[in-house]
Amino acid sequence: MQPFVYIALPARVVFGFGTAKQVAQEVTRLGCSRALVLTTPQQVAAGEQVQADLGDLNVGIYSKAAMHTPLEVTLDALAQAKALGADCCVAVGGGSTIGLAKALALHSANSAKLKIVAIPTTYAGSEATPIIGQTEVLPEAIVYDVELTLSLPPQMTVTSGLNAIAHAVEALWAVEANPIISSLAIQGIKAIARSLPLIKAGPQSKDGRADALFGAWACGTCLGAVGMSLHHKLCHTLGGSFNMPHAETHTVILPHAVAYNAPFAADAVSSVAKALGVANASQGLYDLAKENGAPYSLKALGFKEEDLERAAELAASAPYPNPAPLKKEKLLALLRNAYEGVRPL
């Protein structure tokens, strides 16, 4: 057994069916009484149901959460929270909404810091991770209600699930890897991998949806506990500099990042393959995406071929710690394969 350091991230987790009805109890447990509900424009109906469940604890809804948490949206939401006298926010949705909640908590930290109750409706795992590495902006409570994920569209289900798997994969080869998180990572990969075919066969499969949501928590917890490497560096580059869609980009890049690192992280990659039940981890991840209807090329996502070299240059210029050296020429080859949608060798 190798020496290791493990730091548990504090959060109360409530998991089950119909658990969103308990949101008022979670708000009062935090000592709060004025909750602002957060959603994207597309999830207002879900937010309104949570408002009803909150009853007198609800002070309003803010429904402009957006991908990548634009500063102007954060400041607008913060102004509304202050005007309403909110002491906590209830984030209903995926990474965009939960990211906004964490940004509000961070921006309000110098005054009356807003507490967070997260009710995830996707498998992004944002609720289990801090932003900019500060654990004080983690949600204080996470309510996982499987019923809220039953209507998640099939393709979004696959890309959201593979986005979550990416968190677990990188946890296995991270500098801070430890046996506790590695065990959780393998559980998360297994749960999501077995859930996707079930959901494809029956989008409202309760067994499939429960496995996927548990896997999302497990994988998100992994990302919150250890650092990021090549895969997240590439996805952050493509999202931040080229405005590529978050989960879809993770889905396309992951098999190629695994292939890139395979010679330098053989044990970790072997663990991924075993968790997937395949002989080759990178090919297994590629097949899992393609066979379940997810995009598998950057070209299909609208990325421009002429931007490949610039993306490789940006990724190589400020690398994250990674098992394999990050060389521009090799990163360019990786990105070109991802652009064309080539099945990894």
Rank of each mutant, 00 (worst) to 15 (best):
I192W: 04
A177I: 04
L198I: 02
L230E: 06
K21S: 15
V158E: 05
V117K: 00
V226F: 09
T249G: 00
N243L: 01
T129N: 15
T157Q: 03
V14Y: 00
V252P: 05
L38I: 08
L162W: 02
A247Q: 12
G125D: 13
E291T: 14
V143M: 08
L114R: 12
V117G: 01
A316C: 09
E140C: 11
I142E: 06
A201T: 04
A81M: 05
L198Y: 09
L54Y: 02
P139V: 03
L9Q: 12
F4A: 06
V92G: 11
Q43S: 09
T74H: 00
Q25H: 12
I199M: 09
P263V: 02
M67L: 13
A201S: 13
Y62I: 06
R29V: 02
R194Y: 07
G99C: 08
G85W: 08
D145V: 00
C32P: 03
L308I: 03
A281G: 02
T135Y: 14
I192D: 00
S63A: 13
K115I: 04
A81T: 10
S160E: 06
A168V: 02
P10I: 06
T122I: 06
K328T: 06
A300S: 15
N110G: 12
S205C: 12
E291H: 15
Y62W: 14
A112K: 13
A281E: 05
P255Y: 08
A289V: 07
L162D: 09
F15Y: 15
E26S: 09
A333L: 14
P197I: 00
H68M: 11
A118F: 00
Y123P: 00
V252F: 09
A35H: 11
L54E: 04
K64F: 09
L288E: 02
A166I: 10
C222W: 01
Q51C: 13
L162K: 13
E305S: 14
Q49K: 15
V175Q: 14
A225M: 13
Q134C: 01
I132H: 15
Q42P: 10
A273F: 06
A273W: 01
